[in-house]
């Protein structure tokens, strides 16, 4: 199987968020970036799927700034085979992000059998990229997945909805699967894994290479500010 995982780098959850001077975004100079927590479940599920299907490969894809490739290296150290970075200023909206991921996957020359993502990025909390990507690639998708079993290319997926109820889906590969907490227990990167990761291939493309331009922007943010403080009781 050709397995893809989309991972995003987000500010550590402990980060104190401060709007920048002109309110166009937040102050990012002193942020510690981590792999989006939900994407760890996606990487783990990709590795489990690879283990169950010999001859499979796991490719991790990230759209974002080059300054720090921590999240991609972590995924490679956990056991992914290769990585793709689409360089961008980190100021894309969900639509542009999904289009860039599509472009990067197509450029890899491998036809995806399954694409794992997190259910949501904990910085923007938009919950758009997986479904948009699936739509753009004309693939079925299931989101907020807490159970995933695969036999012979057919996935049985449990999706969590209101009141803790579960919808059980069956879908043949190829498909996009957006992972939630509780799906699995992500492994830690081992020391040999970390050493090996340094030599694994990491392809880099520009946004133009993957067919994304500023004309693709759909959402504009402004006026970043702190929420009104609740007075202490």
């Amino acid at each position: 199987m050709n397995i893809f995982v989309c991972i995003k780098q987000v500010p550590d959850t402990e980060t104190k968020i401060t709007p920048n001077g002109d309110g166009t975004y937040i102050e990012t100079s002193s942020i510690k970036w981590i792999m989006n927590p939900y994407d760890e479940f996606a990487v783990e599920q990709a590795l489990l799927t690879k283990q169950a299907n010999s001859g499979s490969t796991v490719t991790v894809v990230r759209v974002g700034g080059v300054k720090d490739t921590e999240a991609l290296r972590t995924a490679l150290a956990m056991g992914a085979d290769d990585a793709i970075l689409v360089e961008s200023d980190d100021n894309l909206d969900s639509f542009m992000t999904a289009k860039a991921l599509k472009g990067a996957i197509e450029k890899s020359g491998k036809t995806p059998d399954v694409i794992f993502t997190g259910k949501q990025a904990i910085d923007d909390d938009c919950l758009q990229v997986p479904q948009l990507l699936a739509g753009m690639l004309n693939l079925p998708s299931v989101s907020v997945v807490v159970g995933c079993e695969e036999t012979g290319g057919t996935f049985t997926l449990k999706r969590e909805v209101e009141g803790g109820a579960l919808e059980v889906y069956e879908v043949k590969s190829p498909a996009v699967i957006a992972c939630n907490k509780g799906l699995n227990t992500p492994r830690y990167a081992s020391l040999p894994g970390i050493m090996k990761a340094k030599r694994k291939p990491l392809a880099q493309h520009s946004l133009a290479d993957v067919g994304v331009s500023d004309a693709d922007r759909r959402v504009k943010y402004s006026g970043f500010q702190l929420p009104p403080e609740k007075p202490a009781g």
Binding site: P11, I17, P19, I122, D123, V219, Q225, L226, P227
Partner: peptide, 16 residues
């Protein structure tokens, strides 16, 4: 809309 789990608010507009 709130971003960063509600630690920040921003104005959002849609284009296209």
């Amino acid at each position: 809309r709130p971003l960063f789990a509600g630690k920040c608010l921003a104005k959002v507009e849609i284009e296209g």
